[in-house]
Each structure stands twice: as C-alpha cells, then as structure tokens.
Write a protein that binds this DNA or RNA. Structure first.
Length: 272
DNA sequence: AGGTTGACCTGGACGC
DNA sequence: TGCGTCCAGGTCAACC
C-alpha cells in the first residue's frame, strides 16, 4: 500500500501514541514470510524495550529502542509492503485475520502488525548496524543531487522514480502524480529529460509528497493509519487510477499502460 | 553494471 | 450463486 506520505503518517501516529512506553510482551503468528529476523530475535529485542521514538526512513518505519536506563538497545524496522498496517488499539478490539505480531505496551494498548498479502516485513537490528535507507530522501534531496541521480540513465523516468536505491520513498501513485504535474510522460528515458524538465520534476515531486502528507496519504484500497483512519489525498489524484476519465486540465481521457510491470497513468495531451 | 521480467501472496471487483 | 479473470500502493532474485 504505502508510499512515503502513508508511511510518514503511520510513523508519526505511532510516535504520538507509543513513544515513551515499554513493550511488555510480544506475540508472533505462525507465518514466517513477514519475518526478516527470526521470531526469537524479534521477541528478544522487543520484550522489555522502551520505545524512544518512531519515525519514517524511506518507506520503512523505524522505532528506536532503549533500555530502562536510557542506553540504546536497537531498532525495530517495519515495512508495510502493499497491504500492511500497523495499528495501536485497545486489547479488546477485534483481532483481524492476518495479524502477524502483537506487542503489548505498558500503557495497556497494543501495537498490531496486520498484512493480508504478506509483502510487508518485520525486522530488528542491533545498535551496531543501524538502519539506513538505500537512496536519498525525496523531501530533502537538493536539485544538484536530484539531477545526478537521473543523468545518463537509459530507463524510463517512471522506473527510475520507483527505484529505491535512487530515491527512497516514491511509489506508483506519487511517481504518476508528480510526472503529471511536471508535464512529463512516464515512458521518457531519464537521460532525455532537459534541465528544465528535471527542475519541474524535482519541484513537483516535493510538492505532491508534502500535500499528501498533510492530507494523511492516499487511501486507494486498504490503507489506514495507526488509528485506523483513511487518508484524503486520493481525492486530489489527477491521473492515478483515472483511466479513461477526462484530464482535469484539458478534458483528454487519461491513458493507462504498463511499464516495468506497473500500471502507469498519464494525460497524452498535457504530458510530453 | 544497468535494465527488465517474473515471483512472492490474498482478496476485491467485474463479466458471464 | 459461482467461477474465472484481472487487478492491486512493493520488493527482490535471476536473467540479459
């Protein structure tokens, strides 16, 4: 499900509700697919840990864990995949199918990781190997660095935007929406973009991501934040999943095609 | 090395 | 009602 704005919304919501609390016990389900560390390692890292802060790094949620003394203990890394959610709930709340982990907190609440398709990931890491995103942060990248990422690349700009080793956090929705705002066709080779086009893309990508964060992300299928609330940015989509509907600027029907195995949407009139 | 494809999963929507 | 098909916001390994 979630790209940068959705992950940011979840991470901020978690931080607000669980920072400073201690994880008293952990339940882990039978399914091993979502676990990128062993169940034993996850339980050992989480049980007894105090959550210092929860934040977004790329598309990952990172919880910094500390001892009761305040010494650092390690990190809990969550990736939501396509359908994952991380909720803070009352223990009496209905237990959804596909719940893979429950962390009982000193506050009396629970953190639950739920993921039907199991493309999400749970991992823990010691302080000696702190988590880092593979690429640059889309909300902070300078224009010079942005240009350098795409210059000389023979792949479509859409695919380059989705490459997490270049920018970490952009997914299918915001790639399509930023290319629309920058008036660039998704199929264009990255290396064919002019300096002016790259400047527009740099500006519009930041703009669309910031607007989406403000509106709590896009709820297209099943995305909800840490309190179970939907986002509102889907109401502002110009092209994503609007195939055949009129462009909001020129009325031309929005086209869809597949690129790199992902559906892509664009206005054939506004985007060149 | 950079680029492309298909595999990993469940479930909802749609057509017949 | 049921069955088949297509689609889905993300990686990641395996190929060229």
């Amino acid at each position: 499900m979630p790209e940068l704005p959705e992950v940011e919304t979840v991470a901020n919501g978690l931080n607000k509700r669980v920072a400073g609390t201690t994880i008293e016990s952990v339940w882990i389900g039978e399914k091993r697919q979502p676990l990128k560390s062993t169940a034993r390692a996850i339980a050992k890292m989480l049980e007894g840990a105090r959550i210092k802060v929860v934040r977004r790094v790329g598309k990952h949620i990172v919880a910094d864990l500390e001892e009761e003394t305040g010494d650092p203990r390690g990190q809990w890394i969550i990736h939501l995949g396509m359908t994952g959610s991380t909720l803070v709930v009352d223990p009496a709340a209905d237990l959804p199918k596909h719940t893979h982990l429950i962390a009982k907190l000193s506050s009396g609440k629970e953190i639950r990781f739920v993921d039907p398709r199991m493309f999400g990931k749970l991992a823990v890491t010691p302080t000696s190997k702190l988590f880092a995103a593979p690429g640059l942060e889309p909300l902070q990248v300078s224009f010079d660095d942005f240009q350098r990422l795409f210059r000389g690349r023979n792949t479509p700009i859409k695919s380059a935007l989705l490459n997490q080793k270049l920018l970490s956090g952009v997914g299918n929705i915001y790639a399509d929406e930023s290319l629309y705002r920058a008036r660039i066709r998704p199929r264009r080779k990255a290396k064919s973009l002019t300096r002016a086009e790259l400047a527009r893309l740099h500006e519009k990508l930041g703009e669309v991501l910031r607007e989406a964060v403000e509106l709590g992300g896009s709820s297209v299928n099943d995305y909800v934040d840490s309190e179970g609330n939907e986002g509102f940015f889907q109401l502002r989509h110009n092209v994503y999943q609007r195939t055949g509907k009129p462009c909001l600027v020129c009325k031309t029907p929005i086209k869809r095609f597949v690129i790199g195995g992902r559906s892509s949407h664009y206005c054939p009139e506004c985007q060149k």
